[in-house]
Each structure stands twice: as C-alpha cells, then as structure tokens.
Design a protein around this nucleic acid. Sequence first.
DNA 1: CTGTTAGCGCGTTCAA
DNA 2: TTGAACGCGCTAACAG
Lengths: 358, 358
Amino acid sequence: MSVNGAHNSRYEGPKLSTSNRSPATYKDIQRLTGLSLATISKYYNGRNVLSSNREVIESAATELNYRPNAFASSLRRGVTRTVGVLLPSFQVPFHLEIVVGIEKYLRSQGIGVLLTSNEQDGTPSSVNAVELLLSRRVDGIIGVPALSDSSALDTAVSIGIPVVTVDWCPSGLDADSVTLDNVQAGKVATQHLIDHGHRTLGALVGEEGMWSLQGRLDGFLAAARAAGITIAEDHIQRAPLNVDDGYAAMMRLLAADTRPTAVFAGNYDLTVGAVAALNDSGLRLGRDVSLVGFDSVELAQVTRPKLTVYVQPVEQIATEAARIMNARLDTPDASRSRIVLELPGHLQIGASVRRLSD
Amino acid sequence: MSVNGAHNSRYEGPKLSTSNRSPATYKDIQRLTGLSLATISKYYNGRNVLSSNREVIESAATELNYRPNAFASSLRRGVTRTVGVLLPSFQVPFHLEIVVGIEKYLRSQGIGVLLTSNEQDGTPSSVNAVELLLSRRVDGIIGVPALSDSSALDTAVSIGIPVVTVDWCPSGLDADSVTLDNVQAGKVATQHLIDHGHRTLGALVGEEGMWSLQGRLDGFLAAARAAGITIAEDHIQRAPLNVDDGYAAMMRLLAADTRPTAVFAGNYDLTVGAVAALNDSGLRLGRDVSLVGFDSVELAQVTRPKLTVYVQPVEQIATEAARIMNARLDTPDASRSRIVLELPGHLQIGASVRRLSD
DNA sequence: CTGTTAGCGCGTTCAA
DNA sequence: TTGAACGCGCTAACAG
C-alpha cells in the first residue's frame, strides 16, 4: 500500500537500528547522581547549583543521552514555546521564504514552529488546521497570506493568544499585521512607467476585496492621477490570482480598443500569466508593450528581455512578524494596541520597460 | 525596536480582546456534569459512553469552549503525534509544495508538523534544529532535500525514531527515502534531445557527491551511450546548485570548442542560470541551442519559446513520504527493512528543443 | 458502563 | 543551596 504507485522500489539493508528505549528522564539522572529531582531541574533552568553537582549532572546527562522533555515542561509551565504558522490553501513561492524566515528567527529564541495549511480537504476525519494548533496549545499563531477564511483566525483571537498576520490582514480581525506597503508599491511601479514616457497605462489586479491588491491598484491610480493621466476603464483588469486568469486578463488588455503601451501586473501569478500572454500574442516584451511585474525575481532573469519587477522585502517581513510575535509572548500585555507594520519593497530594474520618446 | 525599519507604522484599535483565562480541562467538565474524569476521557477517546452522558459532556464542552490538551495526552501516552520536517539551508521552490503535501496528509491522520530549517545561523544561543525536534519528542522526522549535514539526521536515527528522507538520501543513513527516479529522468530528458536529431549534447549537473544530480547525469550518459553518442569532456559542466554558478557553467558550455546543439540542465537553479546565460550571449533558445530544463514549470511558461522541462511528481513524493512515515508510526516494527521509493516524473513539452534535420 | 487511583516528566513551592 | 512533596491535564489500570 505504501509502495503504491511506485515506479521502482527495492528493499535493502538489514534492520533499522533498534535503540528504542524510552528517553532518559530526571529520574535516570537522579539514579546516577544521587541528587534530588529539584536540583536537577534547577540545573536545567539556569539556577544556581554547586559546581561539583553541575559536573556530575552533565556527565550523567551525556552518558544517558538525556534531552529535556519539552512538553512535560510545557504542561507544568502552561506555555509551549511553540507558535503555529498557518498557510493559505494556495501556494505562492515566497511563502516558503516567509515561513523559513519566521522559523529561523523563532528558533533562535528557542521557539518551535508548528506548520499547518488551510487546505479544506474533503476528508471528514481531517482535523481543522486551527483546531490542531489550538489543541496543541501553541502560544500564538502567525497567519501567512492570504486567508480566504479569516474566521479560523477569529477563534484563535477569541481564545486570547496573540495573532499576527502577514501580507494581508482581514478587516475586522483584531491582530497585528506585517505587510508590504502596497500603495507605495503600486505608486513606485507605476511612476517608473510614467517616467519612461508612458501615458496609456494598464493594470492587472485581483478581484474586489483582495486587500493587498487593492492597495497596489490605489497606488497605481494615485500615480496616474498625479501625472494627469486618466485610465480607461477597460485598462484595469481584475482577475483571480492565478496564472490562467492572469493570462486571460492580459489578453483582454491587449485586445482593448486602444492597447496600453505599459502594464503593471500586481502579483506573481498575474505576472507569469501576463508574460505568457504577451509572448503568445506575438508581441514583444519591452518593445511593443512595457511591463512591470511583481515578486517574480527568478522569472525576471529568464524572460527576454529581463523583466522589471517590484520585489517585496520577504526576509524582512518574515523577521518582523516573528519579532512581533516574540515580543507578544515575552510580555503578554493584552492591553497593547494593534501593531500594523507596512514595509517598503524595491524596484528591480530589468529591460522590460521601454523609453517612449514621443 | 519591533518597529525598526518600518516605512510606515500606525497604532490603532482600542485593546486586544482579553479572554485570557486558561483553557478548560476535564475538571471543568466534571464540575458541570458530575461525571468522573475517566468517563470524560473515554468519551474523548471514542470509547463507549451512555448517550445521555455523551450529550451532557458535549454541551458542557461547548459551553466551556473545551479543547483537548494534546501534550498532556502526549505525556501520558508517550507519543506526540507530531513529526518534524527538516528543510535544508537553501531553498528550492518545490520544497514548499513538498512540505504542504506532507502536512496535508499527516493532518488528515491527526498528526502535526513541526517545521525546522537546517540553517546554521551563527547565533550561539540558537538551538540546533534537530535538537529542537528531539526535545519536543517528535515521533519521527522527515528530512526534505538536501542535507549537506546528514549527521543531524544520524542522531535522530540513533534515537530510534523513524526517519524518512525526501529527494535525496545520504549514503550510510539508515532511513527510508522517497526520491525521483533520477536515472530515468536523465534518460528521458536526454532521449528527447536525441529523438530530435541532436548528437552534440551538453549537460549541466551538480558537483560530485550530489546523489540526485549524479543519477540524472548517469541517465544522461546512458541514453547517449545507447544512441552511440560520445560526450566530450568539456560538455559536462559541474556547478554548485545555484543560479549564478549555473549561469557560469552554461557560459562555459557555450564557449566550448564545439558548442553543443542541445543541453540538459539537471536542476531548477541550473535551468534558470542556463536560460539567462543563453539570452545574455545573444543566442536564441530552441534555435541556436536546444534546452531541456528541470522542475521549472512556471519558468517554462515565460521563456520564449516555452521551455521543455522534466517535472518531478512533487505532490506524489510528498504524499508517499508522509504515508511511509505514518505507517512506521502505526506499526513501530523496527525490524522492517528500509523502504527506498523511486518515483517517475514526466517531460513537459515546450518548444525549446528544435528538430535537427541534418 | 462508570469511578477511583496512580503516574507520565517536569517545575515549584516550602523546609531544612 | 538542596530535598520532599505536590500538581499541571490526561490516560491506563483496576474495581465496582
């Protein structure tokens, strides 16, 4: 059964190692040292112990291969030093960087990361992601983009544990958040197009309600307005955030009555779709149509010409989210106000934006 | 401090909700129902309870917003129903899919995923990833590609908990593994080039010792040999698995005495580098040089022409790894043999391989 | 089917 | 500074 679907499977080696003895405990150390459990506990909690005892404990511990039992400790202390990270049902490349960034920071604080995705698998036996986290008594939850189902986090908030959202914060959710400064991002990307002489601008953004994409669109519109540019209605194409719909939306843009000379794609998937659509329609990127993409750093290197993209400060977003969570755990002062952090990204210049010398 | 580096930060909202009461326990339910702790425990463990009692418990539980305390249970049972997932220090896009796939399967079994990355951060206070997992008493560890430091997993194996590696299995590690059938992958990709009439072939692969890349190279060589093709020595370029070195390696290939008409890139990063190098050198993908890439499904859509790539069965790899782990946990029969699973991927056809009519 | 009891590994009293 | 005793929340014995 577990070999089901195997193309090639072989069994080798004699046996798995069988040192299946249960892990050592304070009692075992006690047996070797004659000290009391309390003393051993104190040693492991950094309190003062006679240096002679210290040495005895240490040698016993290495001999026994002792490792503290974190959840026995949790039971006693009432905290787990574990935070849950909740991923959305769909996957975006930079989510991995965010999760790893969060884990890296938290581990340096001795905090573990329990990962769940928000996938609504049909299995009835399947455990709800947030329930799993709460049942494991995580000290807090970091919700990574982008929750179609914010109600899940609501129950976490109502429990009273700190919640931090990343990339997006559902309105009405009483949680800290760390996001890109989306308006600024939209402005910068658009201004870059304007600076190159473009005045017929198009935008690919998400559907209504997509908070982050709305911000980017607002920035786009603000930059246009400031330059005295009016945007035709059919030059703003909304689409679900995936490659196929981005492709279709770009095709609609290219088929508009007056084709925009420059386009801003507001998201990774939309960018992929946009480039593919441009290529398929026989138009040349950066010559026939200029394009500023979003987030697709590696993609940007393989298009021809290289793509100009607006890049989120992923590492920083992750670190800040983890830092805020850590601070909340250190001082669980529920009376503090919400923290709303908006970080700037930067434009990575390629050659997909042509200077329009009119 | 936590607002450090903020571009824009505001504080809003009155207070965080303050329902900070500690979670309900069996005792609370007991207080409301008059039942014994044992009965309540039986209810929550699916054993038989009078339906009248069942109802009473359920209503008390919802009133109290009761949630089982998983680690108190763990302490008693001796298992945590948590597995650790260990990521390598470097990041590859499909690792996220693997992790999410693993989590999805395991959650359906009520198993949690504790995520750590193998990053060797300099912080002296930082906790070693595997130590963190073992200290939290995970029931098993799944190591995701690709461990430069396999010794970490060694200690896990010696503890006696099941270890499954994915994508790659360090030689000498006594663990199950789920990988791509790398030899087959190399063969298929190369055969595709040969079928299109190419006989001057080049390959971009990892450095010696990279198990998976060696397999792909073996497949490459086997396919060439079977077709009676000899490969020039400087047509096999080894490089560390990152974009820049892939770029440089491809440049070396293109500068070879006789330039290969077709190239096989053995990995995602090498593929990105190869395409970038090709573009920068002014050669046309698919016309001047044919290319089969690896894993870069989305990349393949934005190159011009679209890239032909060999695609790993990521979802399946993840599921199988999780399934094997689950099986090991269900029947901890240490005497079973190692499971070595090699799964086939498939070629996703683009237009980057030209038919060479000679 | 239910209740009583004991103890998982650890941290914290309080005395000594 | 150390040790004895208790309890965190839950489950596994057993007796009823």
